[in-house]
């Protein structure tokens, strides 16, 4: 099967049925991402952007993409990574990221749970299991990681945090929140997150929003970015995994359901945002970061874990 634009062999068939070779696939992908950035005002000229990196292919590909795109303003781009303390997983992932940043001369800021909270994710999960706190590992990880990224993005004076979230991730999150009946969380999604602007928030943007995970994997491979498959040990306890497999199965029967889900959601998003725009953002009485409640989710979590750390004679840290 040959490319629709030349005689070379196709590597990808788009949803609309276009066969694309390596060269024209790259062009198709890059055009789509640049158009997303422009149309949704994700990154303005001269803005400082911090790429939230996990060491995985999505965020590393985004970092590489933006590094090329911002070739005339490279001083405005850097990477941030959080080491949650997941033994045998994050340490391996971060090794690859450090190598990539060193080879490409990209500044990388790394912060750890251990150093900033006084415990690793492994320890927090163990405490939760032993004491039947019933806090899911992905919840602890997500809340505390987002908190560190936001705090340090503001401290380092970056106005935007770019994440490698793609169309698959977004369609999963939309469906998860629909099924949980959580419209307030839905209102925070979209290519540019957040309903209310607040000086305490670094806005999160998703340049790969309209690219499928398969597309960004192919783009990564064609650009020589390592695509490994190391699974997080806590992944099996994840509700998202069920939703992901369900959507992929459905997409193989009805191609385009993920695109349909996201595009229809975007039509509803302005209504949702209007509905929830009146929510007030105050300050967490413990850490002072923006929070809808008296205490932010990160502090709530830490307060639940803290007594068990003290029982073990461990010091609970608050360095952030």
């Amino acid at each position: 099967m040959v490319c629709k634009d030349c005689e070379n062999k196709a590597v990808y068939v788009s949803l609309s049925g276009k066969n694309l070779c390596q060269k024209h696939f790259k062009k198709y992908f890059e055009t789509k991402v640049i158009s997303t950035i422009k149309k949704h005002g994700l990154i303005e000229y001269g803005e400082k952007v911090l790429v939230a990196c996990s060491g995985g292919k999505d965020s590393t590909t985004l970092l590489s993409f933006l590094w090329k795109l911002m070739k005339n303003k490279r001083e405005n781009l850097a990477a941030i990574a959080v080491d949650e303390g997941i033994s045998g997983y994050r340490d391996l992932k971060l090794k690859g990221l450090v190598k990539f940043c060193e080879e490409n001369n990209i500044p990388l800021y790394t912060y750890s749970f251990e150093e900033n909270y006084g415990f690793t994710l492994d320890e927090a999960v163990k405490i939760s299991r032993e004491n039947r706190l019933n806090i899911k590992p992905c919840y602890i990880c997500g809340v505390l990681r987002r908190n560190l990224i936001n705090v340090f993005a503001r401290r380092l004076e970056f106005s935007k945090v770019a994440t490698g979230h793609n169309l698959d991730d977004e369609s999963q999150t939309i469906l998860m929140n629909y099924l949980r009946g959580n419209p307030a969380l839905l209102a925070r999604l979209g290519p540019k997150t957040g309903i209310i602007s607040d000086e305490g928030f670094a806005q999160r943007v998703k340049p790969f929003y309209f690219c499928t995970e398969k597309e960004d994997t192919i783009y990564a491979i064609l650009n020589g970015i390592e695509v490994d498959f190391i699974e997080c040990p806590y992944h099996v306890e994840n509700y998202r995994l069920e939703i992901r497999d369900f959507l992929n199965r459905l997409d193989s029967i009805v191609p385009g359901v993920k695109h349909g889900l996201v595009n229809n959601f975007l039509r509803l998003l302005p209504l949702l945002r209007r509905e929830y725009a009146s929510q007030r953002i105050g300050r967490c009485k413990i850490c002072g970061n923006p929070s809808a409640g008296e205490v932010c989710r990160a502090c709530m979590l830490r307060e639940r874990i803290k007594p068990f750390l003290e029982e073990k004679g461990r010091e609970h840290r608050d360095k952030q």
Partner: peptide, 19 residues
């Protein structure tokens, strides 16, 4: 396996599902 879950590679080269 769903098509959207994998990138097929034949003899070291990425190929489409029609290969």
């Amino acid at each position: 396996i769903s098509l959207s879950e994998v990138v097929p590679v034949k003899n070291g080269v990425i190929v489409t599902e029609k290969e």
